[in-house]
Simulated assay, not measured.
Amino acid sequence: MSALTTEPNFLMFPFGQTGQHLRLRGGLHLTDRHDFGVFCDDNKDWRIERSAHGELIIEMPTKGFTGTLNAYLGFQLFGWALQDGTGIAFDSSAGFELPNGAMRSPDAAWVRKSQLAALNDAQKQEFLPLVPEVIFELRSSSDRLAVLEAKMIEWQSVGVRLGVLLDPLERQVQIYRLGQTPQLLSNLTTLDCSPELPGFLLDSQAIFDAGL
């Protein structure tokens, strides 16, 4: 992919056939935490992650009903978190710096307030250098299931206590708990997220039906 020079300190990369572009300032090293943050700030319209091997994973804005499904998921998690009061819920715009060097942005996440209290003010303004206790990933029509499953294994390997992969295409839910074998559930109406999220019953059917 060739680079087109547009400004003295910027390179612009055509991305696919959409007419949209990525901007990369000359001299940035994207394995560096600060530089990677600058790159993400310069390309706010894209969802950008970094793998443990330093590879960039770039996604377009969500298509079709995926944004609606994300909203249904976030609405439920945020509502429970406000009532519970022991942690903070995050949407897909939040990035987490993981111990393996990856920077990941799950579709939704929950972090204990005690984890956040250990961070200083500067750290709270950057990608959060911590592992969420609970994460949710939502499969879209363009997502390969095997790629998402590998991502869930990564979440599990860095210490996420509960990972939930929602697959509206197959109406299935995969559960990843720390130290346990993944569990596949089909035609589920509600998912009990206890004990990691005490009392939280995720209405998975409402999320799946939102895309109909």
Rank of each mutant, 00 (worst) to 15 (best):
I153W: 12
G64S: 08
T31E: 15
E154K: 03
T68I: 15
I207M: 00
L188K: 04
Q115V: 02
E196G: 04
F36H: 02
R47H: 15
L22D: 08
F127Y: 12
L138V: 06
S157P: 05
N9K: 11
G37Q: 15
L201V: 03
T66W: 02
S140A: 07
I57S: 04
K124N: 06
M1V: 00
E7R: 12
D84E: 13
F127C: 00
S105I: 02
D45R: 06
R50W: 01
S186W: 00
L28E: 03
D45E: 13
N187D: 15
M60V: 07
Q76K: 00
W155H: 12
R47Y: 13
Q76A: 04
L77N: 00
G64Y: 08
L11R: 11
H21C: 09
P106F: 08
G199E: 12
M12N: 10
S93R: 08
G101I: 06
A94W: 12
A146K: 09
P61D: 07
V134Y: 01
G16S: 10
H53G: 14
T66K: 12
A117N: 08
P132S: 07
E133V: 06
L119R: 04
G163L: 12
A81P: 08
H29T: 15
S194D: 09
Q17T: 04
F10K: 15
L56Q: 07
P198T: 02
E149P: 00
E126L: 05
E137N: 02
A150N: 14
P99I: 00
R104K: 12
I88C: 04
G16T: 01
M103N: 11
E97P: 06
Q205I: 02
Q172I: 11
N70D: 06
I88R: 14
F96M: 05
T181V: 13
R161S: 13
P195M: 07
N187C: 13
D84S: 09
T5D: 11
P132T: 01
G19W: 06
A108W: 01
S2W: 10
N120S: 14
Y72I: 03
G85Q: 07
T6I: 15
L24Q: 10
R104P: 02
L22G: 07
S157A: 14
Y176T: 11
R112I: 01
E133M: 12
S194T: 13
E7Y: 12
A109E: 04
Q83M: 10
A117E: 13
L77I: 11
G85R: 08
T181S: 15
Q123C: 09
Y176C: 10
F13N: 02
A3D: 09
D203N: 14
L201W: 11
S142E: 15
V160H: 06
A210D: 03
S93C: 03
Q125H: 08
N120H: 13
E149L: 14
E170Q: 15
V134H: 00
S2Q: 09
I57C: 03
V111K: 05
T189G: 03
A71P: 02
Q76P: 01
G74P: 02
V147R: 11
T181F: 01
R25E: 15
M12D: 09
Q180C: 12
M60F: 11
L162H: 03
L201R: 10
G27E: 05
A210E: 04
G179V: 10
F96C: 01
L212Q: 13
S93Q: 07
I48T: 06
Q174R: 15
R177W: 01
S204M: 09
